[in-house]
Design a protein around this nucleic acid. Sequence first.
DNA 1: AAAAATATTGCATGTATTTGCGGTGTTTTT
DNA 2: AAAAACACCGCAAATACATGCAATATTTTT
Lengths: 248, 248
Amino acid sequence: MLKKERHNIIMRQINLHNRVLSSDLVELLNVSEDTIRRDLQELADDNLLNKVHGGALSKSYQSTFDDSKVYAKDAKISIAKKTASLIKDGMVVLTGGGTTVIELAKQLPQHLHATFITISPLVAVELAKYEKIEVILIGGLFAKNSQISYGGHVISQLADIRADLCLMGTSALHPTDGVTDTDWEINQLKKAMIASSKKTAILCISEKLGITLRLKVAGLENISYLVTELDADDQMLKAYQAKDLQII
Amino acid sequence: MLKKERHNIIMRQINLHNRVLSSDLVELLNVSEDTIRRDLQELADDNLLNKVHGGALSKSYQSTFDDSKVYAKDAKISIAKKTASLIKDGMVVLTGGGTTVIELAKQLPQHLHATFITISPLVAVELAKYEKIEVILIGGLFAKNSQISYGGHVISQLADIRADLCLMGTSALHPTDGVTDTDWEINQLKKAMIASSKKTAILCISEKLGITLRLKVAGLENISYLVTELDADDQMLKAYQAKDLQII
DNA sequence: AAAAATATTGCATGTATTTGCGGTGTTTTT
DNA sequence: AAAAACACCGCAAATACATGCAATATTTTT
C-alpha cells in the first residue's frame, strides 16, 4: 500500500466520522502504530487534521465539539460505548431506532466486521460509513415521529431473521413488569425483534428505570443484557440484579 | 516496445485502478525499474498522473474523497421545483435516491396528500416531515456509496407495486440510446422501478445529456417526462423533442 | 544504404525514504 | 499507586530513488 493511499484513506475516515483512533487505523490499514502516528503527524503538519492523544480529530469538528451538551447525551454516549463491547466480529446484529442506537452506530470500532440489520434509516446511514460492516435495511411503512419502519410488512420480514443480538432502546423498564411501551405498533415490532434474536440487549438511560407503561413488550427473563450509564453495582440497579440478566 | 505504448498502458492502468505500483509495472511491461520511474516522471510532468513514492496515483483519485459539497445545487433546486408540479393529490409516487430526488423531497408543497414509496432512507426522512404524505420505505441490502437499498429483495418488492409516477435521477441520457448506467445492480433496480410505474420522469441536469454509458436502462419511449434546469425550448433539447416525451 | 546524431534503456553506485522494533518516557485509566 | 495504553527516539533492514555511464535502439543526415 502506498503511503499516499493511506493518507487518503485516513482523511476519508476523518471526514466521515470527524475523528479516528490510531488503533482502528492500525487494524484497517495493517501497518504498525508507529507508521500511523507518523502518518497522522505528517497530515497534521499539512494542516489537514488535529492530532490528539490516541488518534486525530477533524479540523472542522472543533467548532461543533461542544454540542455534546445536548440532553442526556453524555449518558447515551456512555451507553453506546458499553454496548459496542458486546458486539464481536462475525455477529449478526438486529437494531431498532432511537437516539441511543444512533449514538451507538457512531461509536463502533472501525475494524468491526459484522452484519447489521436495522429498521432505522438513520442507523443505516451511520453504519454505511464503516468499511467492514454489511448493512441491511428493513423497509415498510415509515413512522414519521420515530423514524423507523413498522407495520405488518416489517414483522413478516423479521420472521425470516435469526440474529445473534438484538439492540433496542426502550421508554420504560421495571423490575417486575419488564419492558413496556405505549404504542401498539411499536409493541408488536419489538416483540418480533426479540423473537428473531438469540439474545437481546436493552439500552436504557437510568431515568427510564422503574417505569411501567400500558403495553407489555417482554419480561426481564427474555432480556440478556441491560445497558445503562450507571455502574453495574449502583443502588438503583439492585432490583434488576436478581434476574438472569447481565447488567453493564 | 515503444515508449509511447508503455505510456498508454500505464495510463490505462491508472484510469482503471486509480493507482499503480512501480513494481507491478516492471512485471507487466518487462522493463527495468529505472525505465518505469522515468516514464512516471514524464507522465507526471505532463500532468497526467501524480507520482508518489512507490508508484503513482490518478489525478482524479485525490478529489474523490474531499468533495463534500453538493454539485450544481442551483440546477437541482430548479429541477426539484419543476418536478414537484407533476405530483398531484392522491398519487402514488415511486422514487429513487440521488441528490436531485432528495432536493425534490425538500421542495414539495405542505398540503400535498400523496403516497411515496422510496428506496432511499434519506428521501424517506425528508418526506416524513410532511403531515399528509404517507411514506413507504423499501428495504434490502444497503449500498454504502449511493445510500439506497438494492439487490434482489428490493426488486421482488418492487414487483408488487403499481405506482402512478416514478421519479429517478440518472448518470446519462442520450437522444437515441436513452437512459444508461455503469452499475449492474443499479441498472436492474431502475428497470424494475420503471416497470412498476405507469409513467416515469427522469430528473437530469443538463450536463448529463448526450452521454451514453455501458448498460442500457430504458429507451426514451419508456420515459414520459424529462425534467432539466433548461427551458423546454432550449437548443440542446431539440434532439429529445421528437420523441413522445414531455420536456419540462 | 551507410554513417552520424540522437534517444532510449539497463546497470552500478551512492543516497534517501519508509517502516517496524526495542527501549524509554509520558499520559490515561483503574 | 499500579497498570495499561500511548508517544517518542534512534536504529537497522528493506525498499525506492537519482545519477552518470555504457550499450543498444531509433531517427536523421549524408
